[in-house]
Computed example of a mutant assay.
Amino acid sequence: MSWSKLKQQLESFLSPALHGRIEYRAPAYRYSPDKSGTCYISVDKKNILNMNDKSTFIRWYQTELEIKNDPDIQIPVSSDDIESIRQANKGTVPEDRLIIMARNRLSTELAKELLSAQAALTKSNFNVVANKFLTTPIEESLESSDILLNILALVDKRVGKKRILGMREKMRMKHPAVQYFYELRRGGC
């Protein structure tokens, strides 16, 4: 599908509150047709997500430790998580320490997921991901670990205000780029 047709389809799915504010741009390079070039998602004429540039104001993590120490990421610990730690240690660990151990285990898993999603984003071809978004159900795009699929789904008009407001807890554990677009959509539902 040509870029202009793809862009037109993506923009037709934008939430009415964000229509005209969000713009998809992907310049092609005439002398290197095998390269997809760069891709930008702009909000109010500012490049917010540039998939080849880590100098945007959205935080890009370099290490697992940065994710673990980020105060914006709050990881909820369930009783099942605590119970799995208790069983692994045969019940010899004090209760307050179990919570800390469970949170550390969950933060390590989350850090690995975020770093792999971030690495996949920088290597991805926007056209391929956008075509996938257009052909998959919106629920699948929202639940995906792909940052770009999450963003495209969050700004989609098929995701209603009630669903957006109900996703608050899930969004705390997503990449800052996804959180940015969530807050943008939540503010303009």
Rank of each mutant, 00 (worst) to 15 (best):
S2V: 09
S4H: 11
K5I: 14
Q8P: 06
L10S: 00
E11D: 02
S12T: 04
S12A: 08
S12F: 02
F13G: 11
L14I: 04
S15Y: 13
L18I: 03
G20N: 06
R21C: 06
I22S: 01
Y24W: 06
R25W: 09
R25G: 13
P27S: 01
Y29D: 07
R30M: 12
Y31N: 13
Y31T: 10
Y31A: 12
D34A: 09
D34E: 14
K35C: 12
K35L: 12
S36Q: 10
S36K: 10
T38E: 09
V43S: 08
V43A: 06
K45R: 15
K46V: 13
N47L: 03
N47K: 03
I48D: 00
L49Q: 00
K54T: 09
T56N: 05
I58V: 11
Y61F: 10
Q62M: 10
E64A: 06
K68C: 06
N69K: 15
D70Q: 00
D70R: 03
P71N: 05
I73F: 06
I73V: 06
I75Q: 11
P76I: 01
V77Y: 02
D80S: 13
D80F: 10
D81M: 03
I85P: 08
Q87T: 07
Q87A: 10
A88N: 14
A88L: 13
N89H: 14
K90S: 14
T92I: 07
P94V: 14
E95S: 13
I100E: 15
N104P: 04
L106I: 04
T108R: 15
T108S: 09
E109K: 14
L110D: 06
L110A: 03
E113R: 15
E113D: 13
E113K: 15
Q118P: 03
A120K: 11
T122Q: 12
T122G: 11
T122C: 08
K123E: 06
N125D: 11
F126R: 12
N127W: 04
N127H: 10
N127A: 15
V129C: 02
A130N: 03
K132A: 09
F133D: 02
L134F: 05
L134A: 08
L142I: 09
L142A: 05
S144M: 02
S145E: 08
D146Y: 02
I147E: 00
I147P: 05
L148N: 01
L148P: 01
L149Q: 02
L149S: 03
N150Y: 01
N150F: 02
I151C: 00
A153F: 07
A153P: 02
A153Y: 00
A153K: 07
L154S: 05
L154T: 03
R158W: 01
R158Q: 08
G160Y: 10
K161G: 11
G166D: 12
M167K: 00
E169N: 13
E169R: 15
E169W: 08
E169T: 09
K170C: 05
M171G: 03
K174P: 02
F181Y: 05
G187M: 12
